[in-house]
Protein backbone atom coordinates (compact mmCIF):
# COMPACT_ATOMS: atom_id res chain seq x y z
CA UNK A 1 0.00 0.00 0.00
CA UNK A 2 2.86 2.25 0.91
CA UNK A 3 4.42 1.64 -2.48
CA UNK A 4 1.18 2.43 -4.25
CA UNK A 5 0.75 5.58 -2.23
CA UNK A 6 4.28 6.55 -3.03
CA UNK A 7 3.85 6.01 -6.69
CA UNK A 8 0.75 8.19 -6.63
CA UNK A 9 2.98 11.06 -5.87
CA UNK A 10 5.13 10.22 -8.81
CA UNK A 11 5.22 12.97 -11.41
CA UNK A 12 4.44 10.45 -14.13
CA UNK A 13 1.25 9.33 -12.45
CA UNK A 14 -1.16 11.60 -14.37
CA UNK A 15 0.18 10.31 -17.63
CA UNK A 16 -0.22 6.72 -16.55
CA UNK A 17 -3.74 7.42 -15.36
CA UNK A 18 -4.58 9.13 -18.61
CA UNK A 19 -3.30 6.17 -20.55
CA UNK A 20 -5.31 3.82 -18.36
CA UNK A 21 -8.44 5.92 -18.81
CA UNK A 22 -7.96 5.97 -22.55
CA UNK A 23 -7.53 2.24 -22.60
CA UNK A 24 -10.69 1.77 -20.56
CA UNK A 25 -12.70 4.10 -22.76
CA UNK A 26 -11.47 2.37 -25.84
CA UNK A 27 -12.30 -1.01 -24.39
CA UNK A 28 -15.75 0.11 -23.36
CA UNK A 29 -16.30 1.62 -26.76
CA UNK A 30 -15.23 -1.58 -28.38
CA UNK A 31 -17.67 -3.46 -26.21
CA UNK A 32 -20.66 -1.16 -26.41
CA UNK A 33 -20.45 0.97 -29.53
CA UNK A 34 -23.74 0.80 -31.51
CA UNK A 35 -22.27 -1.04 -34.45
CA UNK A 36 -19.99 -3.18 -32.36
CA UNK A 37 -21.13 -6.46 -30.93
CA UNK A 38 -20.26 -10.09 -30.89
CA UNK A 39 -22.75 -10.60 -33.70
CA UNK A 40 -21.20 -8.03 -36.01
CA UNK A 41 -17.57 -7.16 -35.73
CA UNK A 42 -17.06 -3.40 -35.70
CA UNK A 43 -14.48 -3.17 -38.27
CA UNK A 44 -15.81 -5.73 -40.66
CA UNK A 45 -12.62 -7.01 -42.07
CA UNK A 46 -12.07 -7.01 -45.77
CA UNK A 47 -11.95 -10.74 -45.47
CA UNK A 48 -15.46 -10.89 -44.02
CA UNK A 49 -16.77 -8.62 -46.73
CA UNK A 50 -15.15 -10.76 -49.37
CA UNK A 51 -16.59 -13.96 -47.89
CA UNK A 52 -19.94 -12.26 -47.56
CA UNK A 53 -19.79 -11.26 -51.17
CA UNK A 54 -19.13 -14.85 -52.19
CA UNK A 55 -22.10 -16.06 -50.14
CA UNK A 56 -24.21 -13.32 -51.64
CA UNK A 57 -23.26 -14.21 -55.17
CA UNK A 58 -24.05 -17.86 -54.55
CA UNK A 59 -27.32 -17.51 -52.64
CA UNK A 60 -28.88 -14.08 -53.13
CA UNK A 61 -27.86 -12.62 -56.45
CA UNK A 62 -30.53 -14.47 -58.47
CA UNK A 63 -33.19 -12.21 -57.00
CA UNK A 64 -31.28 -9.21 -55.71
CA UNK A 65 -28.93 -8.91 -58.68
CA UNK A 66 -25.19 -9.53 -58.87
CA UNK A 67 -24.39 -6.10 -57.42
CA UNK A 68 -27.33 -6.19 -54.95
CA UNK A 69 -29.00 -3.38 -56.89
CA UNK A 70 -32.23 -5.35 -57.13
CA UNK A 71 -34.12 -7.07 -59.96
CA UNK A 72 -37.77 -7.55 -60.80
CA UNK A 73 -37.95 -10.36 -58.25
CA UNK A 74 -36.07 -8.78 -55.38
CA UNK A 75 -35.47 -5.28 -54.04
CA UNK A 76 -32.16 -3.42 -54.00
CA UNK A 77 -30.16 -4.04 -50.85
CA UNK A 78 -27.98 -0.99 -51.12
CA UNK A 79 -28.44 0.99 -47.90
CA UNK A 80 -30.64 -1.55 -46.08
CA UNK A 81 -27.85 -2.08 -43.59
CA UNK A 82 -26.54 -5.03 -41.62
CA UNK A 83 -29.65 -5.08 -39.37
CA UNK A 84 -31.94 -5.98 -42.26
CA UNK A 85 -29.64 -8.83 -43.34
CA UNK A 86 -29.30 -10.18 -39.83
CA UNK A 87 -33.10 -10.16 -39.43
CA UNK A 88 -34.02 -11.57 -42.83
CA UNK A 89 -31.38 -14.29 -42.91
CA UNK A 90 -31.26 -14.86 -39.16
CA UNK A 91 -34.98 -15.69 -38.99
CA UNK A 92 -34.74 -17.93 -42.04
CA UNK A 93 -36.94 -15.66 -44.16
CA UNK A 94 -34.07 -15.27 -46.65
CA UNK A 95 -33.21 -16.97 -48.89
CA UNK A 96 -36.89 -16.79 -49.76
CA UNK A 97 -39.02 -19.65 -50.92
CA UNK A 98 -41.40 -18.08 -53.40
CA UNK A 99 -45.14 -18.55 -53.62
CA UNK A 100 -47.56 -17.47 -50.98
CA UNK A 101 -48.60 -14.01 -49.99
CA UNK A 102 -45.52 -13.34 -47.86
CA UNK A 103 -42.09 -14.72 -47.07
CA UNK A 104 -42.29 -16.66 -43.83
CA UNK A 105 -39.80 -17.55 -41.14
CA UNK A 106 -38.30 -21.02 -41.50
CA UNK A 107 -35.22 -22.92 -40.30
CA UNK A 108 -32.14 -20.73 -40.66
CA UNK A 109 -29.95 -21.67 -43.63
CA UNK A 110 -26.64 -20.13 -42.52
CA UNK A 111 -24.42 -20.07 -39.47
CA UNK A 112 -24.29 -16.86 -37.48
CA UNK A 113 -20.77 -16.33 -38.81
CA UNK A 114 -21.97 -16.56 -42.39
CA UNK A 115 -24.85 -14.23 -41.60
CA UNK A 116 -22.38 -11.74 -40.17
CA UNK A 117 -20.29 -11.99 -43.31
CA UNK A 118 -23.34 -11.42 -45.50
CA UNK A 119 -24.33 -8.50 -43.28
CA UNK A 120 -20.85 -7.05 -43.52
CA UNK A 121 -20.97 -7.25 -47.28
CA UNK A 122 -24.40 -5.61 -47.56
CA UNK A 123 -23.42 -2.96 -45.00
CA UNK A 124 -20.38 -2.16 -47.13
CA UNK A 125 -22.60 -1.29 -50.08
CA UNK A 126 -24.16 1.77 -48.45
CA UNK A 127 -24.85 3.22 -45.01
CA UNK A 128 -27.76 1.57 -43.18
CA UNK A 129 -28.86 0.50 -39.72
CA UNK A 130 -26.37 -1.69 -37.90
CA UNK A 131 -27.04 -4.77 -35.82
CA UNK A 132 -27.94 -3.68 -32.27
CA UNK A 133 -25.67 -4.49 -29.35
CA UNK A 134 -26.63 -6.96 -26.67
CA UNK A 135 -27.23 -4.13 -24.25
CA UNK A 136 -29.52 -2.25 -26.62
CA UNK A 137 -31.87 -5.22 -26.75
CA UNK A 138 -31.52 -6.47 -23.15
CA UNK A 139 -35.09 -6.96 -21.84
CA UNK A 140 -33.87 -6.63 -18.26
CA UNK A 141 -32.87 -3.04 -18.92
CA UNK A 142 -36.22 -2.01 -20.42
CA UNK A 143 -39.40 -0.85 -18.68
CA UNK A 144 -42.29 -3.17 -19.58
CA UNK A 145 -44.95 -0.62 -18.58
CA UNK A 146 -43.70 1.99 -21.05
CA UNK A 147 -43.17 -0.83 -23.50
CA UNK A 148 -46.78 -1.92 -23.19
CA UNK A 149 -48.08 1.61 -23.81
CA UNK A 150 -45.93 1.90 -26.93
CA UNK A 151 -46.73 -1.63 -28.09
CA UNK A 152 -50.46 -0.98 -27.78
CA UNK A 153 -50.26 2.12 -29.95
CA UNK A 154 -47.72 0.99 -32.52
CA UNK A 155 -47.81 -2.80 -32.75
CA UNK A 156 -50.92 -4.42 -31.20
CA UNK A 157 -53.25 -3.73 -34.13
CA UNK A 158 -51.27 -6.18 -36.26
CA UNK A 159 -49.50 -8.43 -33.78
CA UNK A 160 -52.39 -8.67 -31.23
CA UNK A 161 -52.40 -7.18 -27.72
CA UNK A 162 -49.77 -9.57 -26.39
CA UNK A 163 -47.93 -10.34 -29.62
CA UNK A 164 -49.78 -13.55 -30.48
CA UNK A 165 -50.06 -12.47 -34.14
CA UNK A 166 -52.91 -11.41 -36.40
CA UNK A 167 -54.23 -11.24 -39.94
CA UNK A 168 -53.41 -8.69 -42.63
CA UNK A 169 -55.12 -8.38 -45.99
CA UNK A 170 -55.00 -10.98 -48.74
CA UNK A 171 -53.43 -13.84 -46.83
CA UNK A 172 -50.60 -11.82 -45.31
CA UNK A 173 -50.23 -11.89 -41.57
CA UNK A 174 -48.31 -10.41 -38.67
CA UNK A 175 -46.47 -13.25 -36.94
CA UNK A 176 -46.43 -14.28 -33.31
CA UNK A 177 -43.55 -12.56 -31.48
CA UNK A 178 -43.06 -14.81 -28.46
CA UNK A 179 -40.24 -16.87 -29.96
CA UNK A 180 -38.50 -14.02 -31.76
CA UNK A 181 -35.13 -13.07 -30.26
CA UNK A 182 -34.70 -9.56 -28.80
CA UNK A 183 -32.13 -8.71 -31.47
CA UNK A 184 -34.50 -9.71 -34.26
CA UNK A 185 -37.36 -7.76 -32.65
CA UNK A 186 -35.16 -4.67 -32.57
CA UNK A 187 -34.06 -5.16 -36.15
CA UNK A 188 -37.62 -5.68 -37.36
CA UNK A 189 -38.72 -2.38 -35.82
CA UNK A 190 -35.70 -0.61 -37.24
CA UNK A 191 -35.89 -1.95 -40.79
CA UNK A 192 -39.59 -2.67 -41.39
CA UNK A 193 -39.46 -6.04 -43.17
CA UNK A 194 -42.10 -6.75 -45.85
CA UNK A 195 -45.53 -5.31 -44.91
CA UNK A 196 -44.28 -3.95 -41.62
CA UNK A 197 -43.66 -0.22 -41.52
CA UNK A 198 -40.31 1.22 -40.40
CA UNK A 199 -40.01 2.54 -36.86
CA UNK A 200 -36.80 4.58 -37.02
CA UNK A 201 -35.01 5.86 -33.95
CA UNK A 202 -36.83 9.19 -34.06
CA UNK A 203 -40.23 7.48 -34.01
CA UNK A 204 -39.33 4.92 -31.34
CA UNK A 205 -36.04 5.75 -29.66
CA UNK A 206 -33.64 2.86 -29.01
CA UNK A 207 -34.66 2.99 -25.34
CA UNK A 208 -38.33 2.76 -26.31
CA UNK A 209 -37.58 -0.18 -28.56
CA UNK A 210 -35.92 -1.87 -25.62
CA UNK A 211 -38.99 -1.15 -23.47
CA UNK A 212 -41.15 -2.84 -26.10
CA UNK A 213 -38.78 -5.83 -26.10
CA UNK A 214 -39.06 -5.95 -22.30
CA UNK A 215 -42.86 -6.07 -22.64
CA UNK A 216 -42.86 -8.81 -25.27
CA UNK A 217 -40.39 -10.76 -23.17
CA UNK A 218 -43.03 -11.01 -20.44
CA UNK A 219 -45.73 -12.34 -22.76
CA UNK A 220 -46.46 -15.89 -23.76
CA UNK A 221 -45.45 -17.29 -20.38
CA UNK A 222 -47.71 -18.18 -17.47
CA UNK A 223 -51.13 -16.52 -17.58
CA UNK A 224 -52.42 -15.66 -14.08
CA UNK A 225 -55.79 -17.23 -14.83
CA UNK A 226 -54.60 -20.63 -16.07
CA UNK A 227 -54.39 -21.84 -19.68
CA UNK A 228 -54.17 -18.84 -22.01
CA UNK A 229 -56.29 -20.52 -24.74
CA UNK A 230 -54.00 -19.09 -27.41
CA UNK A 231 -54.27 -15.52 -26.09
CA UNK A 232 -56.38 -14.62 -29.09
CA UNK A 233 -59.34 -13.16 -27.25
CA UNK A 234 -63.05 -13.86 -26.90
CA UNK A 235 -63.46 -16.15 -29.91
CA UNK A 236 -61.39 -18.94 -28.41
CA UNK A 237 -62.99 -18.30 -25.02
CA UNK A 238 -66.42 -18.75 -26.61
CA UNK A 239 -65.32 -21.93 -28.33
CA UNK A 240 -64.05 -23.37 -25.05
CA UNK A 241 -67.23 -22.34 -23.23
CA UNK A 242 -69.27 -24.29 -25.74
CA UNK A 243 -67.05 -27.30 -26.17
CA UNK A 244 -65.71 -27.82 -22.66
CA UNK A 245 -68.26 -26.03 -20.48
CA UNK A 246 -71.50 -26.86 -22.19
CA UNK A 247 -70.07 -30.20 -23.29
CA UNK A 248 -69.41 -31.26 -19.70
CA UNK A 249 -72.76 -29.97 -18.50
CA UNK A 250 -74.74 -31.73 -21.21
CA UNK A 251 -72.76 -34.87 -20.43
CA UNK A 252 -73.83 -34.50 -16.81
CA UNK A 253 -77.43 -33.95 -17.90
CA UNK A 254 -77.37 -37.16 -19.90
CA UNK A 255 -76.07 -38.98 -16.83
CA UNK A 256 -78.87 -37.51 -14.70
CA UNK A 257 -81.53 -38.41 -17.27
CA UNK A 258 -80.29 -41.94 -17.85
CA UNK A 259 -81.90 -44.79 -15.96
CA UNK A 260 -79.71 -46.29 -13.28
CA UNK A 261 -78.74 -49.89 -13.98
Amino acid sequence: MKALAARRHDRRAPIVLLLLALLLTGGLYAAFAPSASAAAPTSASADDIAKGKQLFQANCSTCHGPSAAGTASGPSLIGVGAAAVDFQVGTGRMPAVMDGPQVEAKPVQFSQEQINQLAAYVASLGPGPAIPTAEEVDPAKGDPATGMALFRTNCAMCHNAVGAGGALSRGKFAPNLWETSPTHLFEAMLTGPQSMPVFNNANLTPDEKRDIIAFINEQGGAAPGGLDLGAIGPVSEGLWAWVVGLGLLIGAAVWIGAKSS
Partner: peptide
Protein backbone atom coordinates in the same frame (compact mmCIF):
# COMPACT_ATOMS: atom_id res chain seq x y z
CA UNK B 1 -62.40 -20.51 -13.62
CA UNK B 2 -59.61 -22.43 -11.93
CA UNK B 3 -57.90 -23.67 -15.06
CA UNK B 4 -58.72 -21.44 -18.02
CA UNK B 5 -57.87 -17.77 -18.35
CA UNK B 6 -60.72 -15.55 -19.53
CA UNK B 7 -60.79 -11.89 -20.53
CA UNK B 8 -57.29 -11.02 -19.26
CA UNK B 9 -57.87 -7.25 -19.36
CA UNK B 10 -54.30 -6.59 -18.24
CA UNK B 11 -53.23 -7.89 -21.65
CA UNK B 12 -55.43 -5.36 -23.42
CA UNK B 13 -54.59 -2.38 -21.22
CA UNK B 14 -56.77 0.51 -20.06
CA UNK B 15 -59.08 2.13 -22.58
CA UNK B 16 -57.58 4.69 -24.90
CA UNK B 17 -59.30 5.61 -28.19
CA UNK B 18 -56.10 5.31 -30.22
CA UNK B 19 -54.92 1.70 -29.88
CA UNK B 20 -56.70 -1.43 -31.06
CA UNK B 21 -55.48 -4.99 -31.14
CA UNK B 22 -55.70 -7.71 -33.76
CA UNK B 23 -58.40 -10.20 -32.89
CA UNK B 24 -60.78 -7.43 -31.81
CA UNK B 25 -63.95 -9.39 -31.17
CA UNK B 26 -66.82 -9.40 -28.68
CA UNK B 27 -67.93 -12.39 -26.61
CA UNK B 28 -69.46 -15.18 -28.67
Amino acid sequence: GATMSINPVWSYGPFDPSPVSAGAQPDW
